[in-house]
Design a protein around this nucleic acid. Structure first.
Lengths: 132, 132
DNA sequence: GCCGTCTTGACAACGATTCTCATTCTCATT
DNA sequence: AATGAGAATGAGAATCGTTGTCAAGACGGC
C-alpha cells in the first residue's frame, strides 16, 4: 500500500504541497484546486487529485472524510494525532491521545489483531457556533 | 440534527430494516438495494437512500465510510460502541470503550465543544489472515 | 542536447448520491 | 369504513466528486 520510491519533483506538485502548507488545515482536492487557480496557477484538477493521492500514499498528507464523503487532505506532522471538528463551522483542533493509543492496542491484541491503524474523529459544536 | 418525530411506517422501510437486521453487518445503500431486489422486492434505490438517511438521523442505524468514501450502514444496538475491522477479510468485532468515551468528552470540554459524536475505527489484520 | 519515462491537462467516463415530480399510500379524523 | 392532507414512493434525470484516457510536454540520466 505505502510505496517507497521517490516521486519525481515537478512545479505542480510543489505548488500543491505549498498550498497545503499555507492553509495549515484540511482542504478537499477541489478546494486546493480553487486556491491554486486563484493565485494564477493553471494546475489541472486531475493533477491535484493524483498528487494528493500520491502523497497520501507516501504518508506526507493525512486523509479524512467529511460527513458527506468528500475526501479532505492536510499536510501532517509526524506524530500521530486526532481531530476535533466543529460540525457547524468546520474548525479543527488537533489533539493527541496517548490514552486512546494504548486502549486500541490493548483491545486489538485481545482479539488477535495486528498491524493496527486507527481513525478517531470527534465531531461537535464549538463554543463560537453554540453562541451564534 | 436528530429529529424526534416518528417516521411513518411503510412496507419499504420495514423491508430495508429487515434486510439490515438479517445481514448483521455493514452494507452500502447499493448493496441493500441489491439484496432487496434479489428477494423480489421492488423497492427503489432512491427510497433505500432516503430511508437509510432517515434512520441514521434517528439513530436507528450507524453510518460509516468505506475507504473509497461510500457510505455503509448497519442496524445498531443501543449502546455506543466501536468496531475492530480486519483489513484483509473484513471481519468485524464490536467493542465498547468507556475509556474512549471519557477521554473524548474531556478533550472536547477542554476546547469548548459540545453536542459530541465521535467515530473510532480500528483497522488491523486478524489472527486468521495473518496465518494466511 | 537526446531519449525513454513519468507527468500533465483537457475532457470524457464513472459511480454514488440527490433531486424532481407525478402517483400512491398512511393515518388521524369523520 | 370512507376521506383528505400530507408524506412516501419509483423512475429517471441531474449533480458532483473522483478516476480514466491519451496526446503533448517536462524531467533527469546519458
Amino acid at each position: 500500500m505505502t510505496s517507497t520510491d521517490k516521486p519525481r519533483a515537478t512545479p505542480q506538485r510543489q505548488a500543491i504541497l505549498d498550498t497545503l502548507n499555507d492553509v495549515d488545515d484540511f482542504r478537499s482536492a477541489q478546494e486546493v484546486h480553487e486556491l491554486l487557480a486563484a493565485e494564477g496557477s493553471g494546475v489541472g484538477l486531475a493533477t491535484v487529485y493524483r498528487t494528493l493521492a500520491l502523497y497520501a500514499d507516501h504518508g506526507l498528507v493525512d486523509v479524512l472524510r467529511r460527513e458527506d464523503g468528500e475526501a479532505i487532505y492536510r499536510r501532517c506532522s509526524d506524530t500521530h494525532h486526532h481531530h476535533l471538528v466543529c460540525r457547524s463551522c468546520g474548525a479543527t483542533v488537533e489533539v493527541e491521545g496517548p490514552a486512546v493509543e494504548r486502549w486500541t492496542s490493548a483491545i486489538a491484541a485481545e482479539h488477535g489483531f495486528s498491524e493496527l491503524s486507527h481513525t478517531l474523529e470527534i465531531v461537535g459544536t464549538c463554543a463560537d457556533c453554540r453562541k451564534g
